[in-house]
């Protein structure tokens, strides 16, 4: 069940981005861990989509964390304290510390942004952008791309099945793989381009390129208070960053 929505999607996205910025500014593993435990985990748990978000974070961040641990844990030439010598590979304390800092940062980064994105109501975000008079071409490209992705994935799957029915077998060598890729992408792209040219004519007939403000069919869920809060958040994080980095330079 989706959670009850309190804030406008634009506010939520901005809050997520600013949290990432804060983590980058402070750059201490203690702070990253605190954000992870006190903000990200509760946000995921109350999102109403715990399983999907958890799975997505695991699928995206898991391999990155593991490969980062292997890379810095085994190969960190700058490391001084050698814990284990394996010939060309050396496990060093500094390497493990570096992997831990980067790993925490990546976890926060993925957790915050994915939670914000996966609970996001895209039509509502686009409606807000229209109401706020954002560039309509940008709204069209972003909205249409988000809508097109599942369509493209489905079509690619259907074309793959059709080609397999005609005898497409994925070979081992790189040339065979590129050829298999081509047998799927070429019909996919041709079909999509034909669709696009039809859309081009329809948009032209409906005055897409004429100037002037646009009307959104969805109501504006943004409030003046949230707009003020967004500005305050940006200014606050900006001031904090300047002060924090300034004191770091002076110290």
């Amino acid at each position: 069940m989706p959670r009850r929505r309190i804030l406008n999607p634009l506010t939520e996205l901005l809050a997520a981005v600013l949290l990432v910025v804060l983590v980058l500014v402070v750059n201490r593993w203690e702070f990253s861990l605190a954000v992870l435990l006190l903000v990200v985990v509760p946000a995921v748990l109350t999102s109403g989509r715990v399983r999907q978000i958890g799975l997505a974070v695991l699928l995206i961040a898991g391999p990155l964390l593991l490969s980062s641990l292997l890379l810095h844990g085994l190969f960190f030439p700058e490391g001084r304290t050698v814990l284990l010598d394996l010939g060309p590979a050396r496990v060093t304390r500094e390497g493990l510390a570096f992997a831990a800092v980067m790993g925490l940062r990546m976890s926060v980064f993925t957790g915050v942004l994915l939670t914000a994105a996966m609970t996001l109501d895209v039509p509502e975000l686009l409606a807000t952008m229209t109401h706020r008079r954002w560039n309509r071409k940008l709204v069209f490209v972003v909205g249409s791309a988000v809508g097109l992705i599942p369509h493209v994935a489905l079509r690619a799957q259907q074309i793959t099945r059709a080609q397999q029915a005609r005898g497409l077998v994925l070979g081992r060598g790189p040339v065979a793989r590129v050829r298999a890729l081509l047998t799927v992408t070429t019909p996919l792209v041709i079909g999509l381009l034909v669709d696009a040219s039809e859309r081009n004519r329809m948009l032209g007939a409906r005055g897409f390129s004429s100037p002037g403000p646009r009307t959104s069919y969805l109501p504006d869920t943004d409030t003046p208070r949230q707009r003020a809060a967004r500005r305050a958040m940006v200014v606050g994080v900006g001031l904090f960053s300047v002060l924090w980095l300034g004191s770091g330079v002076l110290a």
């Binding site: 069209f140 490209v141 097109l148 992705i149 081009n200």
Partner: peptide
Amino acid sequence: GGILPMLTTSSLVIMPLGIALNIA
């Protein structure tokens, strides 16, 4: 921000297509 206003509709219409292909 600088590029979008100068694109024609026929370019704009295939941009989502390119984006979706990239991601898929």
